[in-house]
Design a protein around this nucleic acid. Structure first.
Lengths: 146, 146
DNA sequence: AAGTTGTTTTGAATCACTCAAAACAACTGC
DNA sequence: GCAGTTGTTTTGAGTGATTCAAAACAACTT
């Protein structure tokens, strides 16, 4: 069964990260995986279906643990609560809609490292470049045009 | 007097933006100008010297008005409160220290527009690219080395 | 100098998130 | 399989940053 396989994978990844395998963790991992960019409330909403008695606090705990372990990535666009996504490892970027705050992934095309090399970094030893694009999402463009 | 001139400039810029010229606004504008990247508390601290009876709330109001008017720019790096700077108009970027949260300006060198042109923007009509570099500031490098 | 409208002040409220202690459940070794 | 240990979850309260709202006030207009 695909679902079974997924759960096993998730369990294995938790274990590999040195984390105990628990129902809340499997549920959160599943809720975030393949569902874009979710804030803590959205994760709770998706999780309360399969898990009962969960609280926002637990979701925060789990999200924190999974993020620290590198199984999830946290982004914090201006004017939005923290969002979590399952795509980790590659340092991809994001587009945020200035009207509805929708978020989408963006692959940094233009020769990857260029952005990573500012000429004058004011003496900083830089290790990451984070790029956030701002614009109107397709839906909002339509609504404003129509 | 230079100070006089500064104040007149500030007043003119407020008027040009359609804003009334008030003591709190002149004070906040002066506090932020040429003093890097300040959060609301820091602005209040710098302002309470010259202005008495001010509150954090007023500072928030003024910062909001000045930002909306384009006289200040607001940045919101992850894990920091909102920061305000007087350098507006050019879309420069920032380096943030992962250890002490110090912030410095960075001019986007590498041919400006490259970052502004992601191949696949998921249907978004992009109008801004925001780049945040993360690394260790000079002071923190020293402290960790020594 | 008076009126109008935008600002500031005061005070309370909200949102997103963290802290802490007690109850609990996974994994370890026997 | 079962007890022990240690990491997790739960419950409840608390904090920091920011916003909301209404009344007092001051800048600009005529």
């Amino acid at each position: 069964m695909t679902t079974e396989t997924h759960r096993d994978d998730a369990a294995a990844r938790l274990r590999a990260a040195g984390l105990k395998v628990t129902a809340p963790r499997l549920a959160v991992l599943d809720a975030v995986s393949g569902h874009g960019h979710l804030d803590a409330d959205a994760v709770l909403a998706r999780v309360t279906g399969t898990l009962h008695g969960t609280s926002l606090q637990s979701v925060y705990n789990v999200l924190g643990a999974l993020t620290d372990a590198g199984l999830l990535r946290r982004i914090e666009p201006a004017e939005s609560p923290a969002l979590y996504e399952s795509r980790t490892g590659d340092n991809h970027h994001h587009v945020v809609c200035t009207r509805c705050h929708a978020v989408a992934d963006v692959d940094c095309v233009v020769g990857e490292p260029p952005c990573l090399a500012p000429s004058d970094a004011a003496g900083f030893a830089i290790h990451t470049a984070e790029v956030t694009f701002w614009g109107l999402c397709a839906d909002c463009q339509r609504e404003l045009a129509g």
